[in-house]
Structure formats: C-alpha cells, structure tokens
C-alpha cells in the first residue's frame, strides 16, 4: 500500500512550483537581455543595470520607498506586537470584538478601500500629502500583519515561564522584557520583515496616500509599465527580488542555526541531568 509520496503527489508539487517560479525566473533572465525588446533574446548584457544608475527618477523613488519602509515597518512592529499581546493576554475587555475585527479586517480588505478611506482622512485632517501620509498609511495596514505573526507565536508560548519569573519576584513589566520578549523575538523580527516588504511592494495604498510631492518605487514602476514592458523595469524588479530573497534566506538560515543551537543546548542539559 502506498504510504509515501506517490508519483501524482510529486508531479503536482513540481508543476505547482514551476508555475510559481517560472515567470519570476523569466523576468530575471530577460533583465540581462541586450535587446530593447523584452521578448527577443539578443545576448547577455548588463546595460540596463548601468542605465539605471543614471535614472534619477527611479533612484529618488527608491530612496523614498526605502525610508518609508524602514520607518513604517518599525512603528508597525511596535504597534502590531502590542496588538498581539492585547489579543492573546486580555481575553475580556470592552470592545474586544471591535478590536480583533479591526486587526483582522485589513488582511483581506481590498487595497482600494483602505487607500481611499485613508486619503479622505488625511484631507479631512488637512495633512499635506507626501512622505508622512504614506508612512502613516503603511503603518496602519502592515501592523495587522505583524499582529497576526506575533500572535501565532504567543499562542504557543509556554506561560509557565512567565509565572515562574513572577513567582521569583519579577514585576510583570520586567517579566515581559526579560522572559517574554526574548522568546517571541524571532516572530517580531519576521513581523518586521513582513511589514517592510509589504511597504516596499505596495502600489495602491501609496498612490492614494501620496500627494504630488512623493513617488514610491512601485508607483514609478507602475507608471512605466503602463507605457510598455522594458528591460530597464525588469532590471529594477530583479534588484528588488534579489534584496528580498537575500533577506528571507538570511533570516531562514539564522532561525535554523538558533534552532539547532537550542536542540544542542537541550541535549547537553539532559545529559547533565542524567
């Protein structure tokens, strides 16, 4: 009897992954195309990367995007972690249903609605649209993703560790910083990375929240894509994919190393006991 991985299973996984990765691979390959036509291969060249260095519009947009991403991801991580703590640690407080609704709704809410509503708020408040409003908008929708990531870690957290610390006389605040925070730190780091990439990728919400003053990289890419597919855009996209992939792989490696270290420590402790 079949207990393992049938040929059908292997085939469907392989086809699924090919479907997921082939378009990205083709995009990267054609960014090194010498021809101006994206779809006709005319030899290897890095000319599009060179021409990027002189494209001030794209460089400026990249700089805005990077600043918005770093700032909004950091604020969103703090707020998202607090929201996750509120949801897991306080099972009863007035307005909890509304609160959890506001945390989960942005995960599926269409971007156009979030973008439009935030823009109308900024206009009503009389804010100048630009760097600040994009950052506020990004904090708002990315903090919910951080909250979900941190919350899933908190749900599997062994609360007896906290209780032990408090029995030994630590205040709840001190317990949080010395016991809870170190344990959930990996989830907070992945939450920050998720918030950063979401901010880096967002087109729709940024388009609403940005005034004429600020343009982000996705907005720039979008306006050029509308004019046609060019190898230069492929080059920008390839760089972005490269940055994100490096970050994700590095995080995975670090996590894996920590995990192995933890297992070794546990083994050592068990041997010491015996």
């Amino acid at each position: 009897m079949n207990t393992g991985w049938s040929r059908f299973n292997v085939a469907s996984v392989a086809v699924g992954f090919a479907f997921l990765y082939l378009p990205i691979v083709l995009l990267v390959v054609y960014s090194f195309n010498a021809s101006k036509l994206v779809t006709v291969w005319a030899g290897f060249s890095t000319r599009w990367y060179v021409s990027l260095i002189h494209n001030e519009g794209i460089l400026n947009a990249a700089w805005v995007t990077l600043r918005v991403g770093l700032l909004s991801a950091t604020v969103a991580t703090v707020l998202g972690t607090l929201a996750a703590l509120a949801l897991t640690r306080y099972t009863r407080f007035r307005g909890r249903v509304l609160f959890s609704g506001m945390v989960f709704a942005p995960l599926v809410m269409p971007d156009v609605i979030i973008g439009l509503s935030l823009l109308l708020l900024f206009v009503a408040l009389g804010f100048d649209r630009g760097f600040l409003t994009i950052t506020l908008a990004h904090v708002t929708f990315t903090m919910c993703f951080v909250a979900v990531v941190v919350q899933s870690r908190l749900l599997t957290f062994d609360r007896s560790l906290e209780e032990a610390a408090m029995d030994l006389g630590a205040t709840p605040v001190r317990t949080f910083f010395q016991v809870t925070l170190p344990v959930i730190a990996p989830a907070i780091v992945s939450g920050w990375m998720l918030a950063f990439t979401l901010s880096l990728d967002d087109l729709v919400i940024a388009s609403f929240a940005a005034g004429p003053g600020a343009t982000t990289l996705p907005m720039k890419i979008y306006s050029q894509v509308r004019l046609g597919v060019t190898p230069e855009i492929n080059a920008v996209c390839t760089i972005l994919i490269g940055i994100v992939a490096t970050g994700v792989f590095a995080a995975a490696l670090i996590n894996r190393r920590r995990e192995l270290q933890r297992q070794r420590d546990e083994h050592a402790a068990m041997r010491a006991d015996g």
Binding site: I221, V229, I241
Partner: peptide, 24 residues
C-alpha cells in the same frame, strides 16, 4: 513550505508585470 511562501515576499506588482511579457 518555504518555497510556497517565498513568492509572497516578492512584489505583487512585479509578479503581475512578469506575466505581461509571457502572455502578450
């Protein structure tokens, strides 16, 4: 699992853009 999550990290706009060159 990581291979399924990885594309989610790359830009939505870029992934849609990639299909224009394939489908036109």
């Amino acid at each position: 699992l990581m291979l399924v999550i990885l594309p989610f990290w790359t830009s939505f706009l870029i992934r849609v853009y990639a299909w224009i060159g394939i489908l036109k």
